[in-house]
């Protein structure tokens, strides 16, 4: 016994303590020990498919309780929910919804309007809805697809058949007549079109030679020089600003220290 040693008992004690603390910590983390205080309400759904015991009950996305029990009553699914923190009114609504596409089922509660009298504890929420689940979604998609195919069919019926074909053909003929008409107009007024083009040529030539206001603006060298000067000045100014910056920053820093 030359040095003060920690006895094996103490070491083992610390180990056991650490183990128990960690076990309690993890257990508390994963079991929401918020023994939901509240009242039990029931609701009758046409289908509680996918809903499980302990599923969340939410109001406006906030967790307020959980599903206690699921049973059958007169061929409908009866769900007992424990709901706390929220006062339920008689026009409250319960809707089975899904978190995400593959998520869990939960019950969304709308507590109802404040003017309506309160629902007594244990009461039944009268207004229920089952949000469309995947089955229903697929069913509605199917009906939509059927509608599309009906549309296609009726379109086919309208256009198809001898009468429809004739109508389409007529349309094509009309288009052809219209385009030949346009061609004839151009051919008949050849001289006039030529004049228009000649006028345009004259104008562009003037512009090129620097006559007229537009021409001057484009070709005058003085104007160009002045523009260049302005640009250079601006560049210098910008450089000045750039050079100044580090100095001022340094100044500010020094100011901070002294």
């Amino acid at each position: 016994m030359k040095e003060a040693k920690v006895s094996p008992e103490a070491k083992v004690g610390i180990l056991v303590l650490v183990g128990i603390i960690l076990l309690f910590f993890m257990s508390f983390k994963i079991t929401r020990l918020e023994m939901v205080r509240g009242e039990v309400y029931t609701a009758l759904f046409t289908s509680a498919s996918g809903l499980v015991i302990n599923a969340d009950v939410e109001v406006a996305g906030v967790h307020v309780g959980k599903v206690e029990k699921i049973g059958l009553e007169k061929g409908k699914a009866k769900v007992w929910m424990k709901i706390g923190k929220v006062a339920m009114h008689q026009d409250a609504e319960a809707i089975i919804k899904t978190h995400g596409v593959l998520g869990d089922k939960y019950i969304e509660i709308r507590p109802g309007s404040p003017e309506v009298p309160l629902l007594p504890p244990g009461g039944t929420i009268a207004h229920v809805k089952s949000a469309p689940d995947m089955d229903q979604l697929f069913a509605s998609l199917e009906s939509a697809a059927r509608g599309m195919s009906d549309l296609g069919k009726s379109l086919g019926e309208a256009v198809g058949g001898e009468e429809g074909k004739r109508a389409v053909k007529e349309m094509v003929f009309n288009l052809r007549d219209a385009s030949t008409g346009l061609k004839e107009i151009v051919r008949d007024n050849k001289g006039k079109v030529g004049n228009i083009i000649a006028n345009l040529e004259e104008i562009t030539a003037k512009v090129r030679e620097g006559e007229g206001t537009l021409g001057k603006l484009l070709t005058d060298e003085k104007l160009a020089e002045e523009a260049e000067k302005t640009m250079k000045k601006m560049q210098k100014a910008a450089e000045g600003v750039q050079e100044q910056t580090p100095i001022t920053t340094l100044g500010a820093l020094l100011g901070l220290f002294f």
């Binding site: 180990l15 056991v16 183990g19 960690l22 910590f25 993890m26």
Partner: peptide, 8 residues
């Protein structure tokens, strides 16, 4: 006990 520590 060691397992709890390893889990954590």
């Amino acid at each position: 006990i060691l397992t709890i520590i390893a889990d954590f």
